[in-house]
């Protein structure tokens, strides 16, 4: 992981605070999340306290602070999905997994994220698990879908 961070930082030789967001994005791209270690490293590099970086990073929805699960669930909360009940879907998943959006379940199998429109409005409400879309999900179908993935383990 340390190597990954070094490699990212090397892309920003000027070490300017203006690069903070792109640096964090790049790290998340490689590691899947922002670890304490990486935030501290970025802080040292940009001469910025970890509290500031964490403050900035938590301001944006795009950053996560726990590693992704084996199956990463994205719940679309775009307008179409919202209108057709994505909030209930999200609630159901949160209950089922015992985690909130942005978190990873303790067993490491699932992680959860809320995303804006993923461009599949015709399938609303839609969720994507590791890139596979599941269309017109309902509170009932969620359990089945999740169990299917669980059974693969």
């Amino acid at each position: 992981m340390e190597k990954n961070i070094e490699a990212v930082l090397n892309k920003y030789p000027e070490g300017s605070v203006d690069n903070l967001i792109p640096i964090l994005q790049d790290i998340q791209e490689v590691d899947g999340f922002l670890s304490e270690e990486s935030v501290v490293k970025v802080g040292e590099y940009l001469n910025m306290p970890a509290s500031k970086i964490y403050g900035v990073a938590t301001f944006y929805n795009q950053f996560r602070f726990t590693p992704l699960g084996k199956y990463h669930i994205q719940v679309c909360c775009g307008t179409a999905c919202h209108v057709l009940g994505s909030a209930t879907v999200l609630e159901e998943i949160e209950k089922n997994l015992g985690v909130k959006s942005g978190q990873t379940a303790k067993d490491g199998i699932f992680s959860l994220e809320v995303v804006a429109c993923i461009g599949a409005c015709g399938l609303a409400p839609v969720i994507s698990i590791n890139g596979n879309f599941h269309a017109k999900v309902t509170s009932e179908s969620i359990k089945e879908i999740l169990d299917n993935y669980r059974n693969k383990e």
Partner: peptide, 16 residues
């Protein structure tokens, strides 16, 4: 310490 999260979720606290 700094602001963490945003909007109605905002709190003040140490990183992580």
């Amino acid at each position: 310490i700094d602001f963490i999260n945003r909007g109605s979720q905002s709190i003040i606290g140490p990183p992580f």
